[in-house]
Design a protein around this nucleic acid. Structure first.
Lengths: 199, 199
DNA sequence: CCGGTTTCGTAACAGCGTCGCGTTTACGGT
DNA sequence: ACCGTAAACGCGACGCTGTTACGAAACCGG
């Protein structure tokens, strides 16, 4: 007896796509529910019936961003050389950030005012670096990396890549980084600093 | 003939103080002009006559944050040991961020929606890392650090400290970092990775 | 063909940043 | 002593935001 529903999965994806597009092209200020709904050919009610509100919509973008990042990190194949693997992971991190510049600000720079990721999303975000953690743990077990809690080394590598990308997206990275593989050089320097002394 | 002005320097400072306080205690969402003006005993007009608008007020907070950071970095005394100096600068960076958590989100995580630092503020932000750049340049000149453009090494060290602090403030740093000087250990690892091979 | 039921769009509400307008205030000239 | 003038400030309106209550719309069974 109901009227045919139009707030379906297809509309949900259209809203998410358009929201990411608005974020990337015009910034967080342009992500308004009225405009978003109009662009998707619906009304603001759709956001509430499909997500629950603007916060949850942004949370969905957040989750999507970390899923893509996680997929890229898991796709990095191991070479057996720990430093080389860490460099590859760092490059994959940067590639993911540049590929979806639209989602990166939501994931890491609290681009939307009132938004805080919920518990499940935060756990997903932390577990995204698991491939990195495994690589580090393997290196520590084999005595290649320093005898330090693997979580510390993994967090350091993550922080480094995150900081570099963050500076790059804000245009605060010197132009030399664009050329001559300075990115790779920096990642190698950071990783090799954790090599066990005398190796 | 005018009426006595109350939109003076003292009110300007009061507004800045209260704005930083609101940011730190209740987040960017709580920084509204009406409430800010009421707390400072004035009206929203004061923000426009003293700053020009909310964006410029946030820009003033941004500038203030980088001035404090710059002061802390310039206060770090050199030891002659490049790695030790870089570690000290990294620790000073963290100390500054923790000392004024209220300003850090404005400086680095675009906490306020429409805000983008103006050109002068952006130049001030970049020049804040000058002490770091000088230390690196000295190390490269003396042949202690790798023969890489100093801007690259300096940006890398900055990115690392920035990434670590960013993760820490978001609660994504493993608990080991709080203890046992793991922070210093990580900074040392990152810096020593740039030592000239065979040194 | 009409009643019931589910679903969606509209419009109202409180809040925001912004700015024009009217009031307030003190001084200088009469 | 008083009033006109000119500057400075606060009030309130405007258009916008996220959110939600409510009425209209659309289908199916009787």
């Amino acid at each position: 007896m109901p009227r045919p529903r139009t707030h379906d999965e297809a509309l949900r994806l259209r809203l998410l796509d358009r929201a990411g597009e608005l974020l990337s092209t015009e910034g967080a200020k342009a992500l308004g529910l009225r405009r978003l709904a109009a662009d998707a050919g619906t009304s603001t009610t759709a956001v509430y019936s499909l997500f629950g509100g603007k916060t949850e919509l942004v949370n969905a973008l957040y989750v999507e961003g970390f899923r893509r990042l996680g997929a890229r990190l898991r796709a990095v194949e191991r070479t057996g050389d720990v430093v080389a693997d860490l460099v590859r992971l760092g490059l994959a991190y940067r590639a993911s950030a540049l590929a979806s510049r639209n989602l990166y600000p939501v994931m890491f720079t609290r681009a939307v005012p009132g938004f805080e990721p919920n518990e499940a999303a935060a756990r997903l975000a932390r577990s995204t670096v698991d491939p990195l953690l495994e690589t580090v743990r393997d290196g520590v077990d084999r005595g290649v990396l320093a005898d330090v809690p693997p979580g510390v080394i993994a967090a350091s590598c993550w922080a480094f890549a995150h900081g570099l990308v963050s500076l790059e997206l804000d245009g605060n990275l010197p132009p030399e980084f664009g050329t001559a593989g300075m990115y790779e050089r920096a990642l190698r320097a950071n990783a090799s600093g954790w090599l066990r002394a005398g190796a």
